[in-house]
């Protein structure tokens, strides 16, 4: 277990951190050089290296700077504080989860309609696909502004952007999943003269569960992106997106990178959680484990 799973992960993480440090040095060095030049000094490379890792507004903050910032804004701040990253992460997470649930429900409903109706199959699918060709960065401000103008602010507009991004993978995955039963199983239900709803609940739905979880993993990551993007256009005061925005206004690169990292960790946790639930459900449904 430790050897086969933890070790490779740690190796990759160590490699990423090493590369990160190297880039931090390279990218932050010019600032130190010109500072030294202005002061009329000449500094050697060995003098530059430590300085590149302690700048106030580095081009690329060093990993430990980001780690310290995350520590200070999570563990050392009360959760209700506006400076707590946990508070901001929660704001984004709540929009993500709400949007994801609505997106999943919408995606499943669409898939059920598409699988059961030829007309919907022909008429809906092109729209579903077209909807995803509109760049979300163009659409998000419009959604936020339109809702703001009718007095709806905060959670819901952001969640709707998450919905918009997450319904698509779920719809596509579920259409595939609901169509995945073998012909023989469909024939079997036919010999029982099962009606559509019986065939759906006893065959199509259970067959589609693995597809559902695979597409929900993509959906939740997309939801998180949607919620963050939804926080950008209005200059929201709370959420990971707001932290990114504020950070870039004031050139607080350390703050930007810690928000980014927290978002990435959050995405990883969410995807992992869904994968875990999917695996648990699979085992409960008696499906043979891959390495039983």
């Amino acid at each position: 277990m430790i050897r086969t799973r933890i070790l490779p992960i740690l190796t990759v993480v160590a490699a990423i951190i090493a590369v990160w440090y190297a880039f931090a040095v390279v990218l932050n060095a010019p600032f130190e050089r010109s500072a030294a030049e202005r002061a009329g000094e000449t500094i050697s490379f060995t003098e530059i290296v430590p300085r590149t890792m302690g700048q106030q507004r580095p081009v690329l903050p060093a990993p430990h700077q980001v780690a310290v910032e995350i520590w200070e804004t999570t563990a050392e701040k009360s959760i209700t504080s506006k400076r707590s990253l946990i508070y901001h992460a929660w704001v984004t997470l709540s929009a993500t989860l709400l949007g994801f649930m609505m997106g999943t429900a919408l995606g499943i409903l669409l898939a059920v309609g598409i699988v059961h109706s030829r007309v919907l199959d022909k008429s809906m699918m092109p729209w579903v696909i077209t909807s995803q060709t509109i760049p979300i960065l163009a659409l998000a401000p419009m959604i936020i502004v339109v809702f703001n103008s009718v007095g709806v602010t905060g959670l819901l507009p952001k969640a709707l952007i998450s919905t918009y991004l997450s319904f698509f993978p779920v719809a596509v995955g579920m259409v595939k999943g609901l169509r995945s039963p073998e012909t023989m199983h469909m024939d079997l239900m036919h010999t029982y003269s099962a009606n559509r709803s019986q065939t759906f609940w006893k065959l199509r739905w259970p067959s589609s569960v693995p597809f559902l979880f695979t597409s929900m993993k993509i959906g939740i990551a997309a939801s998180l992106v949607g919620a963050i993007v939804g926080e950008l256009p209005t200059g929201a005061v709370a959420g990971l997106g707001a932290r990114l925005l504020a950070g870039s206004y004031y050139g607080q690169t350390v703050q930007i990178w810690s928000a980014l990292l927290v978002a990435a960790i959050l995405a990883g946790l969410l995807v992992g959680l869904i994968g875990w639930i999917g695996g648990w459900l699979n085992r409960r449904m008696g499906v043979r484990e891959a390495r039983a």
Partner: peptide
């Protein structure tokens, strides 16, 4: 059928009971 065509997510008892549920 030529293959058993049991539903993998159902136990043997639930598979045998499937047509009875439909009925």
């Amino acid at each position: 059928f030529q293959a058993a065509a049991l539903f993998p997510w159902r136990t043997i008892a639930d598979n045998v009971g499937l047509p009875l549920e439909v009925m």
